[in-house]
Design a protein around this nucleic acid. Structure first.
Length: 918
RNA sequence: GCGCAUGUGGCGUAAUUGGUAGCCGCGCCAGACUUAGGAUCUGGUGGAGCGAUCCGUGGGGGUUCGAGUCCCUCCAUGCGCACCA
């Protein structure tokens, strides 16, 4: 009986489906465990071998936990709204709902091939009304709440209104854009005025933001669609345009998002990325009087983290966007300033940030240093960003590298306030130097002077201590079609939420997917939509993905996004697996949504993911052929330098290692049907390079092909065998044979092709039990710490050893099957049933490691002389140090190396080693 | 530029707290069975040397009885962030 993987895998996949083996109840006596994969965007290209890496890891862990007696929630779904489907619709006229559904069907088939244990009854698709009804509902929760800074939590907007009616802004305080008012003043405001005030508090709010507007395409472009000030597609001019946009007030959660990191198991690198993104800094805002030829009582407000360097300020730099530039620019400089502003306006934010060349212009105005009356020139430069701090900085060239370069470039004299610590060649950003030329700060160490300076600034009333965040509020609208409609109507410029009963607000069909007038989305082209005064923007991709892990718990609930009892049972995601590319986007947004839902009492936990494991990226290993210019001749790599050639990507699937299958190449594309080859040693050798796996580079490897050739179990184990899950590495199909051979060898412990049934009911020997229990221990430990590659290796060792012992005993093999189940579920089910068990092996219990089988009475000790290993000695484990000394010193190898010299010291570490020092 | 991570045979990798470097697999070499093998099985395989032995975890230095592992420094690669004041 052979290992017929195709038949048995199909048989068991059908069996699992028919018996609903993977259906998980919401009520159970077992402890719960929630394993989640980042759900995929169902792209038209389908799965490549990089996608399932994390899915396999989570599948193994889910099955492992199930065998360990947990009720395991392990669902899958689709992040189904998104731009590619809309772009496809524009180009091919296919409704995004149709192409998305097709892509999902394709994904599902590919996933099913690999034999995952998802509970498909719980599948979610973010684009379905039953799902996005609740995305809209949560949006309304955010719209109808504000962040209570005293309580540090979200609270109903009605509480805010009540507070305004009673106390004005006295209790909750003002916000940017809100002037303080009394209760009476609040009551005197019109409805519209009141709503405008409330908008400055809502967690989901409407404001104005700049977007990349391309007039020719009539649409808004993403940063990376803009290159050199023109659109990537078509090369049309792009300008910045202010558009009404929705935002989420995530900045209010900045501190809690930071603090929450202490309670969750994310990698340090991941936590650091989030911390940097949030970018909390401590400093001060300082007001400077402005001296300009135009009369102004405006102050220049700067934000600095280094108020201790106030006497080293040689110039000020303000962002080109600041609205008061006109009011301070001198007549002489007006033309230069206007030119510079026009130059900056033509540049995308990304270009400005990437720019290394120094540029800027003097305004002709000065700020006055409040401590010494010094005139400080005010410059404009694109390296200062309007969105951060106050959009203005005080420049200290001796302490800041950018300021230093700017000063050098424009010949601005540099004041040294740190004496020898500044060498005039480069800035020194130290905090440990002693201040000089700094009036009341002179002689102080900078680190200590920061606080002294801030106190003085506050005492003089010219500034305040200030905590700043780099993070900005999250833009939450897109001028697109294929996304969730906002449940908002606009009446007289006031946003009014729909009622819960009106949800879901269905995404209507459109005639055309092209943009509406004035940069609005396609929904603005629908007369009925516009006449209902509905919002024409849609929500961005991350709306649906910010809370999907909650919907899996209770996916068919029509009364709530998730029943509170159910979310109390399942709680946090215990293990979340996905790529690092979502480090700051998705993972921050879903953390914020979770906190808001928690604050409003809808769920009982405020961090969504207890533990995160990042899977590494599987890169592609591209292959190249070299075509001789203007011919259809291809020259092998070793000979290519003799010709003028162009390197062309060739499909990796028709290359064996580096050797091209020339016949397959001719068939690959009609252009190459009559290709000729210049071979070396009778072979055509390709070039190779590691790149991102992508269809356009012809370096994708489709899992379906490998599953078909070797089976799902081999594929699963091979992906794990490649190396640690979190490491990125290029895909190489070469080694898969080894894993396949291993499974065949495993099978042969039970059945031999010629001899038939091999397994028997004999009693295992001590040696056999030792092999088994060694494996149990290693595999259990490795699985627990997500070291799946070493676990696969342990399986191989175990099977090799059992084969060497000719052990075919059911008592041993039966336990090995259970151990294998998470990794190779199909073959395990088959063998489990063949050796006479009823039911699924998943309902078996995990083997229990028993130390008594693996205890050794002696150990092979390495014996070193002066730290170099010279020999080994087999010694009893309970030997005493004195005995070891005696035996070792009498050993002839040791005697040879000590050359008769007396040992200075003998180090004996029981269970480890012996070292003789002479 | 800043931050983080990683450098081990021809290749993917292993070595969990500092204690026998190279487990497991690929590839390669030899052999068995075969009309044949890109099937299967057995043995070998870090480098140099006939050998005893020596050299070896990116380079250099250090701590230690002992370093792939810890510290310093330099180099290389990958990833992330990017004029963040």
């Amino acid at each position: 009986m052979e290992y017929q993987f195709r038949e048995l895998e199909k048989k068991w996949q059908d069996h699992w489906k028919k018996n609903k083996t993977y259906q998980v109840p919401n009520v159970s006596d077992k402890p719960k465990f929630y394993v989640l994969d980042m759900f995929p965007y169902p792209s038209g290209a389908g799965l490549h071998v990089g996608h399932p890496l994390g899915y396999i890891a989570s599948d193994i862990f889910s099955r492992y936990k199930r065998l360990k007696g947990f009720n395991v929630l392990h669902p899958m779904g689709y992040d189904a709204f998104g731009l590619p489907a809309e772009q496809y619709a524009i180009e091919h006229g296919v409704h995004p709902a149709v192409s998305t559904a097709q892509n999902i069907d394709n994904f599902r088939k590919q996933l099913d091939n690999i034999g995952f244990c998802y509970d498909w009854e719980r599948e979610v698709r973010t684009c379905e009304p039953g799902y996005y009804k609740w995305t809209q509902w949560i949006f309304l929760q955010l719209f109808n709440s504000f962040f209570d800074r005293d309580q540090q939590k979200a609270s109903s907007i009605n509480n805010l209104i009540a507070s305004f009616e009673k106390n004005g802004t006295a209790v909750v305080g003002t916000r940017a854009g809100v002037e303080a008012f009394t209760a009476e003043e609040w009551k005197a405001k019109s409805h519209k005025e009141q709503q405008e005030v409330l908008m400055n508090y809502r967690l989901a709010f409407c404001g104005y933001g700049e977007v990349n507007w391309c007039e020719a395409l009539g649409t808004v472009l993403a940063n990376d669609e803009v290159v050199n000030g023109v659109s990537e597609r078509g090369g049309h001019p792009v300008v910045k345009k202010k558009l009404r946009q929705w935002y989420l007030r995530i900045t209010e959660y900045a501190d809690r998002l930071l603090k929450g990191l202490d309670e969750i198991e994310f990698s340090e690198a991941m936590k650091e990325m989030q911390t940097n993104w949030i970018g909390k800094s401590y400093g001060a805002e300082i007001d400077f009087n402005i001296q300009s030829e135009k009369a102004t009582d405006r102050k220049l407000r700067v934000y600095t983290t280094r108020p201790d360097t106030i006497f080293g300020v040689d110039f000020m730099v303000i962002a080109p966007e600041l609205d008061y530039i006109d009011s301070i620019t001198s007549t002489e400089q007006a033309a230069a300033v206007a030119d510079y502003l026009a130059f900056v306006k033509s540049r995308s934010e990304r270009e400005r940030m990437a720019e290394k060349k120094i540029s800027g212009v003097f305004t002709g105005a000065y700020a006055i240093n409040p401590f010494n009356g010094k005139q400080i020139p005010i410059w404009i430069s694109e390296y200062v960003l309007a969105g951060y701090g106050t959009g203005a900085i005080m420049a200290v060239p001796c302490g800041d590298e950018r300021d230093f370069k700017f000063a050098k470039h424009f010949n601005i004299p540099i004041t040294n306030i740190i004496g020898d610590a500044f060498n005039g060649e480069e800035a020194n950003p130290t905090k440990d130097a002693k201040l000089e030329n700094s009036d009341f700060l002179t002689g102080m160490v900078m680190r200590d002077a920061i606080d002294v300076a801030v106190k003085k600034i506050e005492d003089l009333g010219i500034g305040t201590r200030k905590v700043n965040f780099k993070m900005r509020d999250a833009a939450f609208s897109r001028q697109r079609y294929w996304g969730e409609p906002f449940p908002i109507t606009w009446k007289d410029g006031v946003a009014a939420p729909l009622t819960e009963a009106e949800l879901p607000l269905l995404l209507p069909d459109v005639e055309s997917y092209s943009p509406g007038p004035e940069g609005e989305g396609p929904l603005a082209n629908i007369p009925e939509w516009v006449s209902r005064e509905l919002e024409t923007n849609t929500m961005p991709g991350y709306a649906g993905s910010s809370w999907y892990f909650l919907r899996y718990m209770d996916p068919h609930n029509n009364e709530a996004f998730c029943d509170r009892k159910v979310s109390d049972y399942w709680g946090q995601v215990d293990l979340y697996i996905g790529g690092t590319e979502h480090a700051v986007g998705h993972l921050l947004y879903s953390r914020m949504w979770t906190k808001a839902l928690y604050d409003l009492g809808h769920i009982g936990f405020d961090e969504p993911f207890r533990k995160l494991v990042n899977q590494g990226m599987i890169q592609g290993s591209s292959r190249f052929v070299y075509r001789i210019q203007n011919t259809n001749k291809f020259v092998s790599k070793g000979l290519k330098d003799q010709y003028e050639t162009n390197a062309l990507h060739v499909d990796v699937n028709i290359v064996d290692g580096l050797e091209l299958d020339t016949e397959a190449f001719k068939k690959w594309k009609s252009d190459y049907a009559d290709a000729e080859f210049i071979l070396e040693d009778g072979k055509y050798i390709c070039g190779a390079e590691v790149e991102k796996m992508s269809k356009s580079k012809y370096n994708t490897v489709n899992p379906d092909m490998l599953v078909d050739k070797y089976g799902a179990d081999t594929f699963r184990m091979y992906e794990m065998f490649l190396g640690p899950v979190e490491i990125s590495k290029p895909w190489d199909t070469k080694g898969i044979e080894g894993v396949h051979r291993f499974l065949k060898k495993f099978w042969r412990l039970f059945y031999d092709e010629l001899k038939g049934k091999m397994w028997n009911e004999e009693t295992p020997t001590a040696e056999e039990l030792k092999v088994l229990h060694k494996a149990i221990k290693k595999i259990e430990e490795d699985t627990e710490r997500f070291s799946f590659n070493t676990a696969v290796s342990a399986f191989m060792i175990c099977v090799n050893e059992l084969a060497d012992l000719k052990c075919h005993k059911k008592a041993v093999l039966e336990q090995l099957i259970v151990l294998m189940t998470p990794y190779a579920p199909h073959i395990s089910e088959e063998l489990w049933s063949l050796i006479g068990n009823q039911g699924s092996v998943l309902d078996a219990s995990y083997p229990k490691y028993e130390e008594k089988y693996t205890i050794e009475s002696s150990k092979e000790y390495p014996i070193s002389v002066n730290g170099k290993m010279r020999t080994t000695l087999n010694l009893p484990v309970d030997i005493s140090a004195a005995e070891v000394e005696k035996i070792v010193l009498a050993n002839e190898v040791v005697l040879k190396w000590t050359e008769g010299k007396p040992p200075k010291k003998i180090i004996f570490v029981p269970g480890k080693m012996v070292n003789v020092v002479i």
